[in-house]
Design a protein around this nucleic acid. Sequence first.
DNA 1: CTGTGTGAAAACCTTCACAGCA
DNA 2: TGCTGTGAAGGTTTTCACACAG
Lengths: 270, 270
Amino acid sequence: MATGRTHRPATRSRGIPEATVARLPLYLRALNALSERSVPTVSSEELAAAAGVNSAKLRKDFSYLGSYGTRGVGYDVEYLVYQISRELGLTQDWPIVLVGIGNLGAALANYGGFASRGFRVAALVDADPALAGKPVAGIPVQHIDTLETVIREQHVSIGVIATPAGAAQQVCDRLVGAGVTSILNFAPTVLAVPDGVDVRKVDLSIELQILAFHEQRKAGEENLAEESAVRNAPTTAVSGVAAKETPAERAARAGDGPGPEGDLPAVMRA
Amino acid sequence: MATGRTHRPATRSRGIPEATVARLPLYLRALNALSERSVPTVSSEELAAAAGVNSAKLRKDFSYLGSYGTRGVGYDVEYLVYQISRELGLTQDWPIVLVGIGNLGAALANYGGFASRGFRVAALVDADPALAGKPVAGIPVQHIDTLETVIREQHVSIGVIATPAGAAQQVCDRLVGAGVTSILNFAPTVLAVPDGVDVRKVDLSIELQILAFHEQRKAGEENLAEESAVRNAPTTAVSGVAAKETPAERAARAGDGPGPEGDLPAVMRA
DNA sequence: CTGTGTGAAAACCTTCACAGCA
DNA sequence: TGCTGTGAAGGTTTTCACACAG
């Protein structure tokens, strides 16, 4: 679910598959937990369980980084932590700017997981003059006028957008204009960026919609197969399921349309 | 990046690929925007651009839902909105419980994208007695003791966890115990759930780490190929890149280790 | 003649299963 | 013996390219 282009077609070696990269942070988290408990080594089986993947996948993933394990034994926890951190670029300092200090922005600013991974909040920025100067998570919020200055002075290359959807593209343009080349977007908009800029998005409502899809399926199966209770739906399942609904009665959905969408006050809009 | 099992191996028809399901909400959002502007029809090319995907993919995706377009013309916006909504199960009402009303929980409670998609916040729940009764987003927070009651009385099947990592598994167990079968997890933990329960996770720090990885790559390429500026990294690129670092000097990283991890106060921990 | 719908090819990712090292 | 590392097989997803409906 990455976005911006730039990723060369996995030319020759050094090309760690995107799917693997996306799992490295997961392994890292599990390893850090082990490290804190002073566990010296771990097998692919154990680590996989802790990270919520299967062991074959984990071993394949690690094989792209190099041969960091010991046959018959497992992986050295501390060593792996270091190797993965380095591979992800977490051994260096990443100053980030957080734009949009509403509910979500404040949550992000307070989020411990950033600071503990080499990410340093260089500035909190918001368009609301009333917020200027107020500290959030111990950092005073700055007016968005200072955005370009902060980015240049602190060499920020990563920006986080937590503004309402309407402001996101504007903010994005300013970030990119000032030199930011990676953007994490929490606003429910598709951002247009020039080549060479990476965008990743996190959309709170999309995830729920995907859950709803599967939930609906489960309900359909239950009705068909009359499951024992709520638990234990057989993976075999029936095929047909849940009416395809005749594909031409577009008249039958006039009044209940797209739902209650007004210009909501708070954080975002989908 | 779904999780829980249950998804049959795409048996026969009616099996919409997971990758497609994950994009439907995106199309839906783009379509809603068009709908608000009273645009009657849209081509795969236009819609794809608005959703940030390519048109071939979009057409394939829609072909799994049925033939809802008109050759030579495009798709009827309102009709598609309806079809996708129905496919995703958004034409019905989904009561959800939100557990953990910290910074993030409050942001979620205020998030307009939920209410406007058939998701209704049935209850906000927190373990902190001091929060009980206080309204967040117009809804009074309840003590977590009432969790089971709310779930059963309101027929909640979807739960959202926005607690600190340490509390997440416990909360998850209680949700599942009370009948919830889909969970959206914002806490940075791997949740163990019985078969038949779906879990999706959103991890704020993982996304940043993935960005850091690519950012690091860009920096490496620049140094090697001496790019013109910051823009425009050629997709061809060189192969070698960025030192593999000798794989055996595990001594050389003693003091700077895993970083400053203490028991942070706020929202989570990675 | 425009733009959908879709087989077929290519790319990518996961899983299997086992050789071989510690 | 136990567990890693990895070719090979099997799935899934994306992309291509074009027949054909409107």
